[in-house]
């Protein structure tokens, strides 16, 4: 099964990448953009989707500083 894992910085933790992007957009004429955060996307095919949460906790994300969300496709 195809899965996508969306990993983002935990709320409240300073996200300098997100801030830099947020400041860059108005410079290009895109106004009204707030709350920009930059994370990672991991795409994978898995035989047993039940293992995904454990994979995230052990390797794909660092639960101390990142939240993750698993999305199963089809």
């Amino acid at each position: 099964m195809r899965a996508r894992v969306l990993i983002r910085p935990k709320a409240g933790i300073l996200d300098p990448q997100g801030e830099a992007v947020e400041r860059a957009l108005p410079a290009l004429g895109f106004e009204g953009v707030t709350n920009v955060h930059v994370g990672r996307l991991v795409e994978l095919d898995v035989e047993d989707p039940a293992q995904l949460e454990s994979m995230c906790d052990k390797l794909l994300a660092n639960p101390l500083v990142e939240d993750y969300e698993v999305v199963l496709d089809g």
Partner: peptide, 16 residues
């Protein structure tokens, strides 16, 4: 830190 031998984590520098 990743091995949990130490508490906490290291993130990207604020100066990027």
């Amino acid at each position: 830190c990743e091995a949990r031998l130490l508490p906490g984590a290291l993130l990207g520098n604020t100066n990027r």
